[in-house]
């Protein structure tokens, strides 16, 4: 078993009075893909967003418990959210390229971090776009607006944008739910390419997608983690009845 890069212990999250996560214990090994599945409102997206502190933006959220990234508590009082998010990047449900050129989108994080070397930036752009499997489609119009791309291309540019700041972990919040099937399968292929180099955690509504790409799958329900195991076991031989009911489509 490889080293655990991210650990969650007894994580509770409250929106005001309402408890949305009820004590989650879940650990992630370095590298590979973990899928978080479960019915709408089960807390899987909320959980994902605690992992790089995106919930900080929402007023009235209270979080207790610990999340450790490489042994460092993400919610320690002196934790630096900017540094955390450089290590733990995120791709959203709706493709959200900035209204700039493709090139500028990809290097934005680096450029703001102060990188000026043109050759280095060019290299990063090419490498990131290749990793995100969108290079061949956009290499001839890198300096055109990213908004002119199709939704699937935009989403892969957004993945490239995250890769360019070389995070260790990539969180994806239903990255294909706004895309057509062809674009979705391209994103899946992209993720399968990345699984050897990055720790990928993906929230998905699409069970087939989870079974196709994930090494491990975690099933959430009503703010609780019901079960986590190798994807094969979750789908073929779940330990809990709730998991089996959900997988076989009996509810949710």
């Amino acid at each position: 078993m490889s080293e655990e890069i991210l650990t969650t212990q007894d994580l509770h999250l409250y929106y005001g009075e309402k408890e949305a996560l009820k004590g989650i214990n879940l650990n992630f090994d370095a590298k590979g893909i973990t899928a978080l599945i479960g019915p709408s409102g089960c807390g899987k997206s909320t959980y994902l967003r605690t992992l790089n502190r995106m919930n900080d933006l929402i007023p009235n959220v209270t979080i207790t418990g610990t999340i450790k990234f490489k042994g460092e508590n993400l919610y320690a009082p002196n934790a630096d959210t900017v540094e955390i998010r450089k290590e733990i990047g995120m791709v959203f449900q709706q493709p959200n390229p900035f209204p700039f050129s493709i090139y500028d989108n990809v290097i934005y994080g680096l450029r703001i971090a102060g990188e000026k070397d043109k050759e280095k930036l060019d290299a990063v752009v090419e490498k990131s776009l290749r990793q995100a499997a969108v290079w061949d489609e956009v290499k001839d119009h890198l300096h055109e607006s990213a908004l002119a791309l199709s939704g699937g291309q935009q989403q892969r540019v957004c993945i490239a944008r995250v890769l360019a700041v070389s995070p260790e972990i990539i969180l994806l919040d239903e990255p294909t739910s706004a895309l057509d099937p062809v674009s979705s399968s391209q994103i899946e292929a992209t993720l399968l390419n990345l699984r050897h180099d990055y720790t990928i955690i993906i929230v998905t509504h699409n069970l087939q997608q989870a079974s196709r790409i994930a090494d491990r799958t975690a099933f959430f329900m009503n703010g609780e983690l019901v079960e986590v195991d190798q994807t094969k076991n979750i789908f073929m031989n779940p330990a809990k009845k709730q998991t089996e009911d959900y997988i076989s489509g009996r509810f949710g």
Partner: peptide, 27 residues
């Protein structure tokens, strides 16, 4: 400017101020 743009900036490791001045304002 969509909330997603702000999240996108923050998720790249930009600070709040950088997100505002470098992503939101230009847009």
């Amino acid at each position: 400017i969509d909330l997603e743009q702000r999240e996108g900036g923050l998720a790249l490791g930009l600070s709040r101020w950088e997100t505002i001045t470098r992503v939101i304002l230009p847009a």
